[in-house]
Design a protein around this nucleic acid. Structure first.
Length: 425
RNA sequence: GGAGACGUAUCGAAGUGGUCAUAACGAGCACGAUUGGAAAUCGUGUUGUCGUGAUGAGCGGCACGUGGGUUCAAAUCCCACCGUCUCCGCCA
């Protein structure tokens, strides 16, 4: 949510930010509505002050036996005028929030220029892209041959963009999940959360998925619930309308959830394999920080996500997202992309963002250090730590052997009963 | 799913149409007094938010789960929704 005070005092900053994003937002119109609202608000408050003053005198008048008929008539008119003001205010507020909710976050000045993901800037790499002395297969072929990934059966029971994992495939997915959660909770100091997989509308608004991107979400028929598109939504909203203890920041959570995405507009893209599914597993990292610490915490967040890939020994690179590819809610974002031999390129496996106070303002999440202090908005951050389904795909492809078997990364073996290789059963 | 009770500050809780909502009373917390130090005791303080001021003081508005309604006036009366608890049913 845009800061209305910033908009009032320094509209040129907001206008420049929107121009960088190539967003067409009617800032002048919004300012005019805001001005009108404040004028009417003042009028309404004057009238209410009068109403309160008169109301206070009425009991005394009655006690003294005075005739209150005239006063009542006057007050009735005043009351009607107040009601009229309140109605105008409500209508204006509705218009203002409707516009405000469609304004994206102000990007950090260091966000690189560019129009598409091709313009993202590579920051660093880990390992070199995997080299094979045989013709490597795509993970969907490996999964089929090993009988561990079964999209056909998923289509039979549900539809496209779902996968049934079987046997060692299911075990591998579960091993990765536990490895990620264990590493983040013990090594990196995050508190594990297991949230609901459905949330109500306010939570989706709080983190910015709604109202603008409703077609991307699955809504549960007959309810007002949405399937979570990421654990970011339930976990960030845990502290909605709360004032956190500033001395306890940063608060760091990690959470596993299944994630559900309609993938509207992705028809025909990544139709094979685990890359783009309606349901996928992910461990998410979420932080609530002091404003002055948020960028340092973003770097640490990325490092924590990278660490699990380093332990898995999967080649990856980190890119800084350019202005044209920056999401609606983010002020700055890094993606981590793993090497995917079947695509012959790097594929996103984690997105780490600093939202600054954008989500905190929507969700009303603040902090203060002591009772005397004024509550201030926190900064929120999150990042995948990391996507599990895509990890499975990356392991199958990067750890495949000439005979079609898969060597299990060392750190996962304790999670798979000591098994070292996945072979056709 | 059925029946009932409830939702007021950090917590417990009073207030059942006006002149006690910063909100009784109790507890907690902060500061001060007392003490060699502590406990106990006493005193003072302790919500958030919006508008207008300078990000101050002051002034004014709003908030008693949420949203409506009745009324000159609503924590109080009415309606809807949300949530909590108890009993019954069902279930993992």
């Amino acid at each position: 949510m845009i800061d209305m005070k910033l908009l009032r005092t320094e509209p040129e900053k907001v206008i420049a930010a929107m121009a960088r994003r190539k967003e067409n937002v009617d800032i002048d119109g919004l300012l005019a509505l805001d001005k009108e609202k404040r004028e009417i608000l003042y009028e309404a408050e004057q009238k209410k002050a009068e109403q309160n003053a008169v109301s206070k005198k009425i009991p005394a008048m009655k006690k003294a036996g005075e005739d209150t008929t005239a006063v009542f008539a006057e007050m009735k008119e005043l009351s009607a005028a107040i009601k009229e003001c309140d109605e105008k205010l409500r209508a204006l507020d509705e218009k203002i929030t409707a516009i405000a909710y469609t304004i994206p976050n102000i990007p950090n000045p260091t966000v690189p220029d560019g129009d598409t993901d091709a313009d993202n800037v590579e920051v660093r790499r880990f390992m070199e892209p995997t080299v094979f002395d045989f013709e490597p297969k795509a993970h969907w072929d490996l999964g089929k041959d090993l009988n561990i990934l079964d999209p056909e059966t998923a289509a039979k029971i549900t539809g496209t963009r779902f996968t049934v994992y079987r046997g060692a495939g299911a075990q591998l997915e579960r091993a990765i999940t536990n490895f990620y959660l264990d590493t983040h909770t013990t090594k990196h100091g995050y508190k594990e959360i297991f949230p609901p997989f459905m949330v109500h509308r306010n939570s989706m608004i709080g983190t910015g998925q709604l109202p603008k991107f409703e077609e991307d979400a699955f809504k549960v028929a007959g309810t007002e619930y949405f399937l979570v598109p990421t654990a970011e939504v339930p976990v960030t909203n845990m502290h909605r309308d709360e004032i956190l203890d500033g001395t306890k920041l940063p608060v760091k959570y990690c959470a596993y959830t299944a994630c559900f995405r309609a993938e509207a507009g992705s028809a025909g893209r990544d139709t094979r394999g685990l890359i783009r599914q309606h349901q996928f597993n992910k461990v998410e990292l979420v932080k609530f920080t002091r404003p002055e610490d948020s960028y340092a915490e973003l770097e640490k967040l990325v490092a924590d996500a990278e660490d699990v890939l380093q332990m898995l020994k999967i080649p990856y690179r980190v890119v800084k997202i350019c202005i044209g590819d920056l999401g609606f809610t983010a002020a700055m974002k890094y993606d981590i992309e793993v090497w995917m031999p079947s695509y012959n390129r790097f594929v996103e496996i984690s997105s780490c963002s600093n939202f600054e106070d954008f989500q905190a303002r929507r969700a009303n999440i603040r902090y203060k250090d002591s009772a005397k202090d004024k509550a201030q908005l926190v900064h929120t951050l999150n990042g995948s730590g990391v996507a599990i389904g895509r990890t499975t795909a990356a392991i199958l492809e990067n750890y495949q052997n000439a005979d079609g078997s898969i060597t299990i990364p060392e750190v996962l073996r304790p999670y798979m009963g000591g098994k070292t290789v996945i072979e056709k059963d």
